Amino acid sequence: MTVSVDDVRAAAKRIAGRVRRTPVIEVAPGLTFKLELLQHTGSFKPRGAFNRLLTARENGHLTGKGLVAASGGNAGLAAAYAARELGIPARIFVPATTPAAKVAKLHTLQAEVVQVGNEYAEAYQAALEARDETGALLLHAYDQPEVVAGQGTIGLELLDQVGGFDTVLVAVGGGGLIAGIATALGDQARVIGIEPELAPTFHHALEAGEPVDVPVGGVAVDSLGGRRLGDLAFAAATQYTLSSLLVDDDAIVAARNELWRDHRLVVEHGAAVAYAALTSGVYRPAAGERVVVIVCGANTDPATLG
């Protein structure tokens, strides 16, 4: 099971008009931010959600039983938003640890919310059981071809918006975002996954030679808390020789505060992870290297910013 650049291009046509073409800003010479925090629902996730639902509708796979999804928050928000826009009932399973702001937003999007367990894996198991019991369509947070292709549309936009770049830094949880972007860019840029030290699913998969379960925790666990890298992400990592770097919680918190202080960007901890690789020195660009950072989510409490 793989995703091709043609799949990404088809997704871009399918979801056009449903999602925002988010802006890019050059914040320093050779450093550009792609502002996916300005996407509908405050993260990049609606791209994949719309592509999954619209593809299912095209193929006659919508059952009339609505959809179910599991999420630490952002994928659930995207699923609920896309479902509401398309007139599809949504039931979203989230961990009990999901921030109250995300749960409240799910309710405003007219989704039924079920809080279960303390981690994404437990919420996902509950969603699978609900799918089997009801016949609803399952929208996976990161490991479905349509979802990965939808997220990859970010890469196509970058090629159109930025006049040449060498490296893209991408936060990794389950891996749908990095898989999609790497597929869209192919050999046109290097893509590096950045993960919290306390949620290293990608890092451990690369070490083991396959996705493996790992314990997860830390400040970014609500959005980067998948216990296991997706199969599609691992396939992309193999095909495009992707690499992983780890940043600690202190670096993530500091980067998040810097994004607010210096750039007036309100982001969740998971969205600061990629930038933390630069601010902490974990990734040091070469002279003249042109770097893009995907700033991927804004669903947070601004009162927690320092």
Rank of each mutant, 00 (worst) to 15 (best):
L35F: 07
P23S: 08
R20D: 07
L169S: 03
N299Y: 07
L77P: 01
A104E: 06
R9S: 11
T55S: 09
L77Y: 01
D7R: 12
E26L: 10
V170Y: 01
G217I: 07
L159Q: 08
D187T: 10
P211Q: 08
G176K: 00
E26F: 05
V282A: 12
N257Q: 09
V212R: 12
A69V: 06
G117H: 11
Y81Q: 00
V3D: 00
R261K: 10
F93T: 03
F202K: 00
E26N: 15
H107T: 14
S243T: 09
E258W: 14
L159H: 13
G72A: 08
D250G: 14
N118W: 13
A136W: 03
G60Y: 12
K45A: 03
V168Q: 05
G163C: 06
T55D: 03
T279Y: 12
E36P: 04
A303Q: 13
T98S: 02
R84F: 12
N257K: 14
L245F: 14
L53Y: 03
H61P: 08
I92F: 04
V295Y: 00
A12T: 09
L38E: 13
I88M: 10
L206P: 15
L138D: 13
I181H: 04
G217A: 11
D166I: 03
G209A: 11
D250W: 11
A10H: 14
A303Y: 11
K102G: 00
Q125R: 14
Q188N: 10
F50G: 05
T41F: 00
V8K: 00
N74A: 13
V247F: 07
A136S: 10
P23D: 13
A182S: 06
I294H: 01
A69W: 02
E146Q: 13
G66V: 10
